[in-house]
Design a protein around this nucleic acid. Sequence first.
DNA 1: AGAATTACTAGTAAAATAGTATGAAATGTC
DNA 2: GACATTTCATACTATTTTACTAGTAATTCT
Lengths: 147, 147
Amino acid sequence: MKISTKGRYALRVMIDLALHDTGEYIALKDISDRQGITVKYLEQIVTVLNKAGYLRSMRGNNGGHRLARKPFEYRVGDILRTMEGDLTPVECLSESADGINCPKAEECPTLSFWRGLDKVVNDYVDSVTLQDLVDQGKSLTGYDYSI
Amino acid sequence: MKISTKGRYALRVMIDLALHDTGEYIALKDISDRQGITVKYLEQIVTVLNKAGYLRSMRGNNGGHRLARKPFEYRVGDILRTMEGDLTPVECLSESADGINCPKAEECPTLSFWRGLDKVVNDYVDSVTLQDLVDQGKSLTGYDYSI
DNA sequence: AGAATTACTAGTAAAATAGTATGAAATGTC
DNA sequence: GACATTTCATACTATTTTACTAGTAATTCT
């Protein structure tokens, strides 16, 4: 029942990009220095975020990444689902590519319980925006605007 | 963000024991036949449930297991936490045995978000009792009271 | 041309998950 | 008391997932 590092780091990357948004592209090297995550691992994460349309990326000298939208336009749930695949607590609630779900769904005494859990989780993560996390970050002791 | 088979199966075992409660001990063999889970794997699960005080177990001929309380006295959250360790979405919220949590907690922009997720999950699973699942099971099409 | 940076594909070590296997101990029945 | 049945305890194992690392190609600016 854990969120993977990809999901957690993706949130930190998005917050980092929001806090350091100057309109310029931000290199993974800079994020790596601030967040303590290797450039190589960050590459994997931003690739997914980029393909989801959450980032604008540019190769080459002075290249890097920046947010494609304003922070309040990102739901945290969307970011997490993008990284995790989905946030369903049990496999039988996943959108299966081949359309196969549990054949015993009709007689399953726990299915509606899992549906309820799935709903509270997704409703919660969708109620928070990236802007909320950014505001939280700025309000904390020790936040250094210069970095 | 998945519940393991141990957590899912434990719920099925508890429901099974509730639905077939006659006051007698129920052998894992019977649960295995009905639920399609091997006796050996069931052993691992009921051992944990037993040590948590959720079951009364008896060895030997005509031995087996039965619920220690009435179904409405079990919160689903307690059963799941017993099997999963905890239901926290991130490690830093776990009750660490050595008391070590994240040293950057004070400056973490995502901590309160994770706390909120932890709360909605645990509040939800604690709002459902085993009796609710049993009622759900009985109400479904295809439930055969004879087995 | 050359440095910086992302993009793409593959590989790998460690941990977690989902079981199996073996045998001992207890209990009721014949 | 022998025996079948069942839990209890411990250890082992195969597979999958996670969390990275590595190498190289492509792009961009100076």
